[in-house]
Simulated scan of single mutants.
Amino acid sequence: MIAAGLVRMHFHDYFIRGCDASVLLDSTSTNTAEKDSPANKPSLRGYEVNDNAKAKLEAVCPGIVSCADIVAFAARDSVEFIRAHTIGRSHCWAFSSRLYNFSSTSSQDPSLDPSYAALLKRQCPQGSTNPNLVIPMNPSSPGIADVAYYVDILANRGPFTSDQTLLTDAETASQVKQNARDPYLWASQFADAMIKMGQISVITGNAGEIRTNCRVVNGEGLEYLHQ
């Protein structure tokens, strides 16, 4: 489902140095782009959506809508869409150490729910050489964006260590419990978080440029582009 990918793209672009759509830039002979870093390749997706939107916008109003604007609008529309569809997926390699190589004393992370760990092992067999194996992020309701994620965390059914770490701090554990109980609270907080993230280090005026093609900068010798 591309919608979840667009929301993730919004996060990966805006949370690193702010709103600049730099994650859309292609690599060059002298620079490895963000999209080709291990954190983004091959898991980040949705570039073609931004390409298509940019091409259509440039055809009717050239030089007006920035690539950063497109990333934000695509994510906003996707949030509305994924409320009734999938919320996302994870590659097996991103958490396999919790299943097979957790520590010197335990091959499996003891904080994982045993039945969930067994399910993950069936979906992500040890020794697999397939880098594209994926699982749904939310095992109890993989096709719906809802508070079941927090219910799963409370049941020790989160695939990432960072998920379970939320329960190790009193403040974050309290937030997990509140969100698990109140879907309306979660929806409101999620919307607020998306808006706040979209306001990180926004560059305006002559500080940047509006790219004609989101994959490349407009001119030569520009070390860093805003949009």
Rank of each mutant, 00 (worst) to 15 (best):
S22P: 05
S174F: 05
F73S: 14
D77E: 14
H91W: 06
T165A: 14
E58A: 07
A74V: 03
Y150N: 03
K41N: 15
T204R: 08
R157I: 01
V49Y: 08
H91V: 05
S97F: 15
I203M: 10
R17M: 11
H85M: 05
T32A: 10
I210M: 07
A33S: 15
N213Y: 04
S43P: 00
N138I: 08
D20S: 12
P159C: 04
D36E: 15
A68F: 01
E223F: 10
L24Q: 13
M197Y: 11
S104I: 01
P139R: 13
P159H: 05
S43V: 11
D36V: 10
A145W: 13
Y14V: 08
L119N: 06
N52T: 12
R211S: 02
A3M: 11
S43L: 10
A117H: 01
T30G: 09
Y47F: 15
S128W: 06
L222P: 01
A21P: 04
D77T: 11
A75N: 01
I87E: 09
A191S: 07
Q126P: 06
S29F: 10
Q126A: 13
N179G: 02
G88N: 04
A191N: 02
N101Q: 09
T30K: 13
A170P: 00
T28Q: 05
D182C: 00
D13A: 02
C214Y: 04
N52Q: 14
T168F: 03
F95E: 02
A84P: 05
C67Y: 04
D182V: 11
T161M: 07
P142Y: 06
L185M: 01
E48C: 08
V49A: 12
V71W: 02
H85C: 03
T172L: 00
P131H: 05
R83F: 08
G221T: 03
A72T: 12
